[in-house]
Nucleic acid binder design. Structure first.
Lengths: 142, 142
DNA sequence: AATATTAGTGGGTAACTACCAACTATTGGC
DNA sequence: GCCAATAGTTGGTAGTTACCCACTAATATT
């Protein structure tokens, strides 16, 4: 029982299917092994890559609505992965920082991500994986 | 305002973003130019590629729930793109066939798809597009 | 003949994503 | 000092996707 050639021949179709399947696999393993959602992982990674930042800055970077950002950060706070202090220079803003636990959880999450990618990209050789990454990066315009 | 390197370095992340963006672009142009949804296009393509079939067969092929298939087919029927006749050999089944209008709409849709892919894959050379298609096809296990 | 299975239907839901409007507290521009 | 803009918050909605259950009509199994 095969899919129609018309769809298999459409790059967008196959690309989307693979993207969704891989993301789903990643999300499942991430929550199972670290308790993080994909967005939580993204937020932790943002804080680690760029250092402490205002809540809105993280949201803007990830393309997340401010209101959704609040709820996401609430989660990180009461799991003790990040702290929320008022920026003394501008008391409207927060200064969100990773805690030690946050950094440690992020490291475990990075390992899980690498692990899952090894699995989902298993049909490709190392050179092909690198090439795929370059190709999709060229297509990616945020 | 850039995305964190951790995410940009994750193939799954970029792949998913590109997949969703491309699919969204395709869906928008398809409905604008032909009135078809992506699933309707997929169903028409299935019928054209494999010939007349039972409703369930099309649904199985596309991985669509039978109940959703009914609603999708209802749409194709009352737009005159397909016909629904009982299979005389097994009167539980339908025999879904493309109408002339259905075939004609499908051809226009194929042109739109090719057109949109030219746009969304514009950052790649022809060789790169072919390679990308091969790579994602290797990753695609339905 | 009785029972199980299959094709198609109708109705409904749960999760997720992505929004939007309205509000408070604070700051910056004039 | 006054007004506009910004950071964060709360509450809510719309669309999509992917289901599930209960039902009928017809066929297959035994």
């Amino acid at each position: 029982m095969e899919l129609p050639p018309t769809l298999l021949g459409t790059t967008t179709f196959v690309l989307h299917k693979v993207g969704v399947a891989n993301r789903r696999a990643l999300a499942a393993r991430l929550t199972a092994d670290t308790g993080l959602s994909l967005w939580e992982f993204a937020a932790l990674a943002t804080l680690d890559d760029f250092g402490p930042a205002a809540q809105r800055e993280v949201g803007d970077r990830l393309g997340l609505d401010p209101s959704d950002m609040v709820r996401l950060m609430d989660g990180l706070m009461n799991e003790g992965l990040a702290t929320r202090e008022r920026d003394p220079a501008d008391r409207r803003r927060y200064r969100i920082s990773l805690t030690a636990a946050g950094r440690e959880t992020l490291e475990r999450a990075r390992a899980v991500v690498a692990d899952v990618e090894r699995e989902t990209l298993a049909p490709l050789t190392d050179a092909e994986r690198r090439h795929l990454h370059i190709l999709v990066t060229k297509l990616f315009s945020p």
